[in-house]
Structures are given as C-alpha cells and as structure tokens.
Design a protein around this nucleic acid. Structure first.
Lengths: 189, 189
DNA sequence: TACAGTAGAGAACGAACGTTCTCCGCGCAA
DNA sequence: TTGCGCGGAGAACGTTCGTTCTCTACTGTA
C-alpha cells in the first residue's frame, strides 16, 4: 500500500483537476476514486467527507497559486515590475487550454452559500492575495489605497477571461495597473 | 387558472431568488414549485427542463440588471458621471443584505463547464455590459481602450465584494475608474 | 501451513433529484 | 345533469450521489 501522504496527494490532485474542469458538484466520489487510483474506503479514511476534500483541494490550489506567483515575480527586477508581473502571470494562465477561471471564484459561486468552510477557504485565499499586493505596493512606495485597486483589476481580469474565453483581459488589466501605479507614484490620483 | 405569462413570470422570479440565494444545483424543482405556487406539471409545460428554466432566469436577471443600470445612469448629468454611476449602482447593490455576488459569474462558475446554454447566456450578458461601457466611453470622448479597463474594474468589484462580504470594493473601483478616465482624457495613459 | 489483520474493489444503501404519471376535482358544452 | 377535458397536488420512477459495508486477497508471523 502506498503511504498516507502519497495517497492523500493523489486524491487531492485528481479531485482538483476534476473539480476545476467540470465543477465540484458535477464530480462524484466515484470519479475521484477512479482518477486517483485510491479506493473509496481509503479516501474516506483520509477525508471525513466530500466537503473536507473540497477544502483540502482549495488549500492545494492556494499553494500552487502562491508558488506560481512567486516564480513569476522572481523574474522582475523592480518593485513596479513585480506588481506588473502579476498580470503577466495571469496572461500566461489565461492562455492555458484548460483555463476555466479562478477555482476559488468558481467554487465560491457554486458552494459559498451552502458551505461556510468553502466560503472561509476562499475568503482566506483572497485575503492572502490582497496582502501580497499590499506588500508590493508598500515596496514601490505608493499609497496603500492603490493595493485594493490592483487586486480588483486582477479579480476582474480572471472572471472576464473565464467568461469570454479569451486572454486579452490580462493585458487590459495590466495597462490599467500601469496607469494607476504611475498616477499613484506622482501624486496625481 | 392563471394565464401563461403570469405563471411563467412567477416561476422565473421564484427560481431566480432561490438559485441566487442557494446556488442552482442546491435548489430542487420541488422548491421552485412550492415558492412559485405553480405545479410541477405546469412548470414542465412552460419549460422543457431545468436547464431551460436556468437560461430563462439568466435572461430575467439581464433585464433587471439593465433596468437598474439605466435608472442609476438617469441621475447622472454628464457622460463622465454616467460612467461613474455604474460604480454607485454596484455600491448600492453590494449593501443589500442578500447580496451574494453576480448571478452570472456564480452560475458560470457552477454550470459553465457542463452547460453551453448557460455559458452562452452569461457570455452574452457580459458582452452587452461591455458594449454599454464602450458607448459611455465613446460619449465621454476617451479612447476605446478605456472601456475594457472599466469593465474589468466592475467585474472585479463584484467578485471581491461577494467573497469578502463587504461593499468597499465599489468605491475602490470607482476611485480607480476616476483615475483611468482622467488619464485617458488628458492623453497621459 | 495456519491465522489474524488490513486494504482494495465495488456492491449496497438511503437520500435527493429531475422528470413523469396518476388520481381527483372543477368548469363547461349539450 | 352528464360527460369531457384540463389542471393541480403530489406520488412514483429511475437515476445519481455520498457514504458504508461485504467479501476477497494478501501480508507478515509463528
């Protein structure tokens, strides 16, 4: 038998892909079992319920998102570039063939009303992202009010790209971000 | 018996409220029947399937959204004000106690992957909104590139407010919009 | 070899859902 | 009044789903 950590990881990864592609409620635990290659009995020994698995998947997504953001920002040479790198990261993501919007936003829309655990996990992720943006804004020396504006642009780009099915929202949001940063830095806004 | 138009309207209104509050898949047709006061048999004579009802609800939401936007924009005295009125409209909406985000975004996240009819209806609504913004941007005499930036701000404000459960994203987006408009009008962006 | 414990495969179970069907009552034509 | 057709209420049906249970096979030990 494979060890607990490996099994858990396999289940979360399989569920993540299925949930993201088809939506959470459209995926039965049988499908997760098949995709993960882990028996239902084992899955239910690792997670008390589907709800708990959903939350684990959201946490997994958070890790991936944070890592992707960190990697993209490493290439940036200035604080300003590090902010704009967010939108380059989004652009690359939107172009992936299986891009289907932000999993957190999607899951919140689907289950946020009925599962407070899901709502909490999503809110937590968004809060972390906003804090990340706030740190970058502080680094660049702009007023703190700029941060939520940039975060809203990033959120809006994600839903716009998801619904339209095209990636151009990333560079539109990036252009807006550049304007907002420049204005904030020169005190005009 | 109530006439067809009235019955249809009652079903759509009841379904709209239930779907928006709990999510689409969390609401059974029995709940729609009870809330609308229309028998299942009648509902299925008005709508071929739940999918068809969902699309009808989305169209109903589109009408409400368009009307709300038009009402808010009537109070504006200039083209610039008419653009900013969008964010005032959002602000008022976010403060409603049962605000739960944009129904189109939520439904797309829930069913967009499995129902192309839903995906189409949502895409259509967002396209209409973008055209509305583009018209206002043309009226104010700003470059066309401003329009998608403002639309992204509006989308981002909706998801941010929905997940955070607080309304401040509206005025943050409004402030960003003011900056973007001003820069676009003076040719600085 | 015999046995105990464990895990996998998937059958089974109870609930919920979308959809259809049955039964009953009402209004209307003759 | 009698018969007919339509609509309402909700029971029924078949499916799907989350979760649990059963049965079998295998591993390690004496």
């Amino acid at each position: 038998m494979i060890d607990e950590t490996t099994a858990r990881d396999a289940v979360v990864r399989a569920a993540d892909e299925l949930f993201y592609t088809r939506g959470v409620q459209a995926v039965g635990m049988d499908a997760v079992r098949t995709a993960a290659g882990v028996s239902l009995k084992r899955i239910y020994s690792l997670f008390a319920s589907k709800d708990e698995l959903i939350v684990a998947v959201l946490h997994h997504r958070t890790t991936i998102w944070d890592a992707g953001l960190a990697t993209t920002s490493e290439r940036a040479t200035s604080a300003r570039e590090r902010i704009l790198a967010i939108f380059d990261f989004l652009d690359a993501w939107f172009r992936e063939p299986d891009f289907r919007g932000c999993a957190f936003i999607n899951t919140h829309g689907e289950l946020g009303a009925t599962s407070s655990a899901v709502a909490d996990a999503v809110r937590e992720q968004k809060r972390t992202f906003q804090e990340y943006v706030a740190r970058l804004v502080a680094d660049v020396g702009a007023p703190a009010a700029l941060a939520p504006q940039l975060a809203i642009l990033a959120e809006g780009a994600q839903t716009t790209a998801a619904i339209a099915g095209t990636p151009e929202a990333a560079h539109q949001a990036r252009a807006a971000a550049e304007t907002l940063i420049d204005v904030a830095m020169t005190g005009r806004g």
